[in-house]
Computed example of a mutant assay.
Amino acid sequence: SAEALRRAGNEEFRRGQYGPAAALYTRALQQLEASGDAAAEERSVLLANRAACHLKDGACTLCVADCTSALELAPFGIKPLLRRAAAYEALERYPLAYVDYKTALQVDCSVQAAHDGVNRMTKALLERDGVNWRQKLPPIPTVPVSAQTRWSVPSARAPGANAPPATAPHGKPDQTAAGIERARTLKEEGNELVKKGNHKKAVEKYSESLKLNQECATYTNRALCYLTLKQYKEAAQDCTEALKLDPKNVKALYRRAQAFKELKDYKSSISDIKSLLKTEPKNTAALRLLQELNRA
């Protein structure tokens, strides 16, 4: 049944198997269509779940498409709004991300991920478009009161009831005190493994920690492991995540510059080192890397 396929998809997602999870959600959608039992609400949930898979896999355009379809079926769903906002943000379509984060806050003003998103987008748009950035925004839809209440009560059908918590990408997946404490323990276990030279195992620990609490230092630590393991794309991505949380983080800028250098993207590498040197003009490692890059 579609329900069984959805549950199986949730299970794969929990295990970090985003491709297989997306395939199961697709089969569930096809089954609903085929049986003519295409309840809008159920289809919307499956599309939002599949969008979460796309987002995890970095397929942002597909994520946007699924979220848009989910929102057409069930307007003002908080999860598709947040996922689409995150995808737009990753695609650097900041005005659209801003509108989705703002809309999500109208639906539920307690969503920390949306508050954080609005703050990041405000900063990015101010830097890019100057003080009049608001004039360039598309209109922000007004959320009817009915939608505000409808989505604030978690229903058994909502993906939140069955989906893993770590689906809001820049949100705080499991921000309970216990979750944060567990994340810290996992990070420290990762640090110990790095000292022993076991970078592969350390990556696993950092990944588990990040599911519970997205912290800048955990991203930069995992990036260091990826650099050692010669997984340069992953290293660069982790540094980018860290810089979203702390735009002037020296370790993130330095490690991303190292990753870009290995990926032969010298222009981006030099740009990161120059940003770093604005904060720490006498950073010897950065100055040395800049010399190497200028010779490259």
Score class of each variant (00 low, 15 high):
44 S>K: 00
274 K>V: 09
208 E>Y: 09
248 K>T: 15
250 V>Q: 12
266 Y>W: 06
165 P>V: 13
134 R>H: 09
52 A>P: 02
122 T>Y: 05
44 S>V: 03
84 R>I: 05
122 T>Q: 14
291 Q>A: 14
133 W>Q: 00
257 A>M: 04
199 H>R: 04
101 Y>C: 00
265 D>C: 08
216 C>L: 04
159 P>I: 04
257 A>T: 00
48 A>S: 09
110 S>F: 06
166 A>Y: 15
81 L>K: 12
281 P>N: 02
102 K>L: 15
291 Q>S: 13
218 T>L: 07
284 T>K: 14
156 A>I: 15
18 Y>P: 01
178 A>E: 02
37 D>V: 11
28 A>S: 05
101 Y>G: 07
242 A>K: 03
26 T>A: 12
146 S>P: 02
239 C>I: 06
118 V>R: 02
251 K>Q: 11
294 N>Q: 15
119 N>Y: 11
203 V>K: 03
273 I>D: 00
199 H>N: 12
147 A>E: 12
50 R>C: 05
123 K>G: 06
222 R>S: 02
243 L>R: 03
43 R>W: 10
168 A>F: 15
29 L>G: 00
205 K>L: 10
105 L>T: 10
74 A>M: 08
130 G>N: 11
205 K>E: 08
157 R>G: 13
214 Q>R: 15
245 L>T: 01
295 R>W: 10
48 A>K: 05
197 G>R: 03
